[in-house]
Write a protein that binds this DNA or RNA. Structure first.
Length: 439
RNA sequence: GUGGCUGUAGCUCAGUCGGUAGAGUCCCGGAUUGUGAUUCCGGUUGUCGCGGGUUCGAGCCCCGUCAGCCACCCCA
């Protein structure tokens, strides 16, 4: 059982091979889809200066105020483990001037860190895939990004519903904020304690409070989309037309307000009720002001992030989780002298890209159990007899396949049983064949 | 950061009124040197999360703490 000293940090998980197969398959699928849309991977530091996140995410957000892993570097600089990926991605694009006359599409995949109380679908180290598109102001970019998000969920086999909203321009949002406050103030006493503080910090968040009394008040509140500036309204209408034309169902959620300060105009979320309280699996929006706010030239931008733990949890619930591949052959040795031949055989087959798991020296019964546990498609046992002239038997573990022959001929034996060998052995060519495994 | 529930063998769990640690499973060996079943026999499981307190005596009661789960909050 767990000893006290040696434990993973709270909210940070170990991922063992039985689970990492699902991760690897998901990540491979995601990378494949990203290349379909011509996104390029950007690999970013996990650590950035604390100031970057404070300026990008917003001083008053919970993330910056109480959820960041922040500490002093040896020279006294304040560093922070990234709580999200957009800020670092924007910083990198500004620093390396990759947006001059270009409209790059980036994606990143990796761990993020937030010091929250862990619960279902929420961890202190969690993993996101994020995408960011720079330099495209039109609603076409929004539609394409949302189409990509839809395809990611579809490819993952995950059922979720798309909600969209528009926050308008900063000016329109500020004007709406005042309008909303003048609606809320007379009703302040009826709001929950949280919402009364939210009125100070970010009154838009009152709109998606879960307390029934607050929801009643929110339902009758003026709608943000009715008070957009003309350009944002046209942008939002255009986006909806495009989504309809692309057969992407959505609903407009008037209370959809993203938690990070940098968003404007389009915001969207894919939500599910299958994950308890953490229903958002993928979320994003437009942030036209962030790049200039961080010192770059005024550049429109849009992006989203998807939580990989949540995606995997949904895949598991819906029976779509990928399982580990299995080796082609188990090779077992009964004693020390036959182990030499068994290991030579295994290495020979690996030269030909056939995955082999080895066992022994051990009793025959033990080898049988090891072979079963290995889940290999075929098994072969080598003992003293095979070193003389007794036949080697290759047996299909869950089938009728069976072959007998000499130790030297195992390769052709496997071929006769249907194992797919590469055309050329990798050690005779200069490119390596892809490893043969089952499933 | 707040609240509720839960921590006993690798895994799933039982443990009565406070009386000195159990079952199943798994694993190993044998019955059975040559193709996996079943059955039978034998064998190893442990800081009862950790620390303190009460008691003649604590897995059990009390306090603290750590961790997990769930919810609030927040968010992916």
């Amino acid at each position: 059982m767990a000893t006290k000293e040696l434990q993973a940090v709270r909210g940070m998980n170990d991922i063992f091979p039985s689970a990492s197969a699902g991760w690897q398959t998901l990540e491979a699928d995601l990378r494949d889809l990203l290349s379909l849309y011509d996104y390029g991977e950007i690999r970013l530091p996990l650590l950035e200066s604390t100031e970057l996140f404070a300026r990008a995410i917003g001083d008053v957000t919970d993330i910056v105020q109480k959820e960041m892993y922040t500490f002093a570097d040896r020279n006294g600089d304040s560093l922070t483990l990234r709580p999200e990926g957009t800020a670092g991605c924007v910083r990198a694009a500004i620093q390396h001037q990759t947006m001059r006359g270009q409209t790059p599409r980036y994606y990143y995949i990796g761990p993020m860190f937030r010091h929250e109380r862990p619960q279902k679908g929420r961890y202190r180290q969690f993993h996101q895939l994020g995408v960011e598109v720079f330099g495209q102001a039109g609603a076409g970019a929004d539609a394409e990004v949302i189409a990509l998000s839809a395809r990611i969920l579809k490819r993952s086999g995950v059922a979720a519903a798309l909600q969209i909203n528009s926050l308008g321009s900063p000016a329109a949002r500020a004007a709406y904020r005042e309008r909303l406050l003048s609606y809320l103030r007379p009703r302040e006493a009826a709001l929950c304690a949280d919402c009364q503080t939210r009125m100070e910090r970010n009154p838009l968040r009152v709109l998606d409070c879960k307390v029934p009394g607050c929801q009643e008040i929110a339902a009758a509140a003026p709608h943000l989309v009715d008070h957009l500036d003309a350009e944002s309204a046209a942008h939002f209408a255009s986006l909806q037309d495009l989504l309809t034309a692309l057969d992407i169902p959505y609903v407009v959620n008037h209370s959809l307000v993203r938690g990070l300060d940098y968003y404007n105009r389009t915001v969207f979320e894919w939500v599910t009720d299958a994950l308890g309280a953490q229903g958002t699996v993928l979320a994003g929006g437009r942030y036209d002001g962030l790049i200039s706010q961080l010192g770059g030239q005024q550049t429109p931008a849009i992006g989203f992030a998807v939580g990989l733990e949540r995606l995997l949890a949904l895949q598991e619930i819906q029976g779509k989780l990928a399982t580990a591949s299995k080796p082609i052959l188990f090779v077992g040795a009964l004693d020390d002298s036959s182990l030499v031949s068994a290991w030579q055989l295994a290495e020979h087959l690996r030269d030909h890209a056939i995955s082999v798991v080895s066992g022994g020296p051990a009793s025959f019964k033990s080898l049988m159990k090891q072979a079963e546990r290995s889940q290999a498609q075929f098994q072969v046992v080598i003992g003293a007899g095979q070193l003389q002239d007794e036949p080697v038997i290759i047996k299909e573990q869950h089938g009728e396949g069976r072959w007998e022959g000499s130790l030297d001929a195992v390769t052709s034996g496997l071929q006769s049983l249907g194992v797919d060998f590469p055309q050329h052995a990798p050690h005779t060519e200069h490119n390596f064949a892809t490893t043969r495994r089952l499933k």
